[in-house]
Write a protein that binds this DNA or RNA. Structure first.
Lengths: 244, 244
DNA sequence: GAATAATGTGTTTTATTTACATAATATAAT
DNA sequence: ATTATATTATGTAAATAAAACACATTATTC
């Protein structure tokens, strides 16, 4: 692999490799988190105002440098925890952005993570630097290349949410089918047929009818459901079908 | 973003940020390429023997450290070029592996790329360290965590090839439908119905009939086709359909 | 020229997706 | 309490796509 394979390389020792790695040109590595939430039937993203004087008008994603003794995933979890006070959130790596000139302070390669939060359930515990939710549709520019990272992660989410049950992380544990559909409509940014939507999800057969009704709605309340992860895992399809 | 957002951070200058990045704990960053090829109706992967004495029995992926002034994608291209002599290959970033203990020589975070080569057309120009093609089905163990990277990239390919026309990078420019189907069967590791396969691809409508026949086959020759990328781009579907 | 080993094509069946309309249930207003 | 309103819940028919399946055709080889 990598480090030890140079052209015409002779046999090396592990010790030699260690010093090669040590003395090599290292690179600042960061994680940036695109944190999505869902509230008021709208898809939102959590942003913070840049604390750089020069860029103080810009909002940015939440991120930090990866520590030398920290797994990459752990680094993203830490950023979430430190910046929002929230733990154990849905988190998945999406893409690594490594253009030389992407960061004005020097070479910084950034690994983008996507996180999904149930806004209603988890209240932000830290509110530095105008940390707050922004409507996804209103996000037009961000610090550095963050808009590129954001766009990439949003596209990723739009695709991913159609193939994996991650959308439930954005909802309360108990939700109505209307809320679920609103969520999908917000993420995919298009209207869906209610009857077919219901049919689809009931057929997938991992929603548990809680025999309970919505409260505090000014009309006939809908039934509440929860997502049964075990059932999903047991029955999930091995996806196939050539189509493009 | 990241670097400049510490808890309770005051307003910072760009200069301050620069020195923060400079003095921060940097990390050795590498790229590892999973290079797939297709030959003799079998999916293959290009591996090299480790030149580490201790691991000399292990094969490994092709990789190298990312240089300070090199874009990440460029780094992967360079590795391909340096190790195979081949240029302008299909190349796509897949995932970043960043566990602290993944590499015995110290902290090395590695960005995995997937590359697809037409074995027949591109002859390897460099054959260091027993660089050669291995049948994908026979790959059981690799250096360090390379088997994990390989498995991840193979799964990625299996999914990706069903949604995007990247498979054609593994074939000669002119190919028969049998070759195309053999390719899909090799990648997906299952038999497909010939009639339905043909229908599917003709319907997608980006194969150009070259009005030419296969040569040197011991039976009725098949027609040759090529992939029309422009036509694909023009008609490609915006993929939708909730299903999991 | 007969046997072989592929290619090339079409139909039927089944499953999935789309389109669409009406009855039921709660709240809010009078 | 009656009515208007807003939303839930449900079913069916039509169109499309996927799966299963069989036979005629065209080269090569013996």
């Amino acid at each position: 692999m990598s480090i030890m394979e140079k052209e015409n390389s002779p046999i090396k020792t592990l010790k030699g490799l260690q010093s090669e790695v040590q003395s090599s040109n290292k690179i600042a590595l960061s994680v940036d988190c695109v944190i999505f939430g869902f509230d008021d039937s709208k898809l939102k993203v959590l942003l913070i105002r840049s604390d750089l004087k020069k860029y103080h008008d810009n909002y940015s994603l939440l991120g930090d440098l990866v520590k030398p003794n920290e797994d990459l995933d752990a680094s993203a979890s830490r950023v979430l925890k430190q910046r929002t006070g929230l733990n154990h959130l849905y988190l998945e790596q999406v893409h690594t952005f490594g253009e030389v000139s992407r960061h004005p302070a020097g070479r910084v390669v950034s690994v983008a993570y996507c996180s999904l939060i149930n806004i209603k359930h988890h209240h932000l515990k830290i509110l530095d630097n105008e940390l707050r939710w922004h409507e996804v549709s209103s996000v037009k520019e961000l610090l550095f290349d963050h808009i590129k990272i954001f766009d990439y992660c949003y596209s990723w989410l739009q695709k991913r949410v159609q193939e994996h049950p991650l959308g439930f992380s954005l909802l309360p544990e108990k939700f109505s089918l209307r809320e679920l559909q609103d969520l999908y409509e917000a993420i995919l940014n298009k209207k869906l047929d209610r009857r077919n939507f219901r049919k689809k999800f009931f057929k997938m057969d991992f929603l548990v009818d809680l025999e309970e009704d919505e409260q505090d709605v000014a009309h006939r309340p809908g039934k509440l459901y929860k997502f049964n992860y075990e059932k999903y895992e047991k029955n999930k399809k091995t996806w196939t079908g050539i189509d493009f």
